[in-house]
Design a protein around this nucleic acid. Structure first.
Lengths: 225, 225
DNA sequence: CCACTGTCTGTGACTTTGTCACCAACGCCT
DNA sequence: AGGCGTTGGTGACAAAGTCACAGACAGTGG
């Protein structure tokens, strides 16, 4: 467990790529940004609600997902503590119509940096610029990965991966089949059936709204990592 | 038809977002970049072949596609004349392992700008910076679109869209079922069957390696635009 | 305690899409 | 003419998604 409310005054040190920033830029970043909070379930940004700020996530996670015309949803990526929200920032510099939305998956705290300052820092600090492009990279390769998985990977493999990802260290998950279905961009029934199969094999134990992982190795083996 | 070898000396004017560049930056861009050519089928970048330059495409098109572990491929996006190659540039600033590859779909000509200069211009010119982020935006929303389509759209709808896109103004396409399958990230047999169905309905005429569109309206109607 | 309500899960029947294993037709080369 | 690689066609089957509905559970308010 890491401290939930670490020293806010020096949040920069939690971001790998920002640690080498020169003193001047650090100060700008600290002075011009503002610490904000949002409760679980809050819509951080979305269609018609563009983020005026670039966010540096201090605590919690934000899920960025997309809703298709048909009403179905899919998770694009998660932003976890210690990561930033570059994609949306950059996207909204240009295109206002934006199919994706960001939702606080837990209560979140973040440092918010106004667009204008973001732009200034990109111009003035090579380190900051590098941070931004690196963050971009990661997100984009993530997106490539999502495309690959959705297009070519079997659903049982993806589900096994998803369960392991979500479980982290623990073996207990509080999640519904519907939520898992959205994460993977498939239908709830498909998840239900696969979970049954996993349970039949003794890999998980199911109950209403929860999943217990009984055999990590089996799941890991299926997931191919 | 546009002139295939337009005045190279002033290629900047072909890029919407670069026209407002100040004189200084324009000169940098022209002096430090180099016009390069590649034949049809050339691999512009790919795994183990990272682009040392940012490309501004003057003529031709480049297809950026991804090859999955299973060997199947999918088109991520196309870069057409008048567009640039920002995603890859930025990506490769950071992550060298890169699943995507860029292939010249036709003979291409491009202005190549070394990374270092790219970085300088991003720092010094607000207009250039804006161009870069706008280009990013477009690509990323394209990727979101691909994810949405792959995950949720029916294959017949996607095929109809694909045919219309590829046909442009004309009614004749020189393309194999296999190539269409890669574009949509599906299997060749699936395309064959759908095309048969389209032909049965009188929407297209098929021949070895070619497709003639007979009923654009029907395709457009199915494609939902 | 019971009835009511909304959420969550389970299931069968069916359609669509993807996979596998072939084969046939075509164009090209020697 | 014969051989060969590419392209397209097909049937049988497996995987995944859709639709319609039913039962099970947890809370809520009487």
């Amino acid at each position: 467990m890491r401290q939930p409310t670490a020293d806010t005054a020096n949040w920069i040190s939690r971001f790998q790529g920002l640690m080498q920033l020169d003193q001047d830029t650090r100060e700008q970043l600290l002075r011009k940004s503002q610490i904000i909070s949002a409760p679980k379930g809050a819509v951080i940004f979305g269609p018609g609600k563009s983020p005026e700020n670039m966010l540096f996530l201090l605590d919690g996670t934000v899920r960025v997902q997309q809703v298709s015309e048909t009403g179905r949803e899919i998770l694009l990526y998660r932003i976890t503590a210690g990561e930033s929200c570059v994609l949306t920032t950059a996207c909204l510099l240009a295109y206002e119509d934006y199919a994706a939305e960001g939702i606080a998956e837990t209560a979140v705290r973040a440092a918010a940096l106004p667009r204008a300052i973001f732009d200034e820092l990109v111009a003035s600090s090579p380190t900051f610029r590098n941070f931004v492009f690196t963050a971009f990279s990661k997100r984009i390769t993530d997106l490539f990965h999502v495309i690959d998985e959705v297009a070519f990977q079997r659903i049982d493999v993806r589900l096994a991966q998803g369960l392991l990802d979500l479980a982290g260290q623990g073996d207990h998950l509080a999640i519904t089949h519907q939520q898992l279905a959205v994460d993977l961009g498939t239908a709830r029934e498909v998840i239900t059936r696969q979970m049954q199969e996993f349970q039949r094999r003794g890999w998980v134990r199911l109950a209403r709204g929860t999943v217990d992982i009984l055999d990590r190795d089996a799941l890991r083996h299926l997931s191919g990592r």
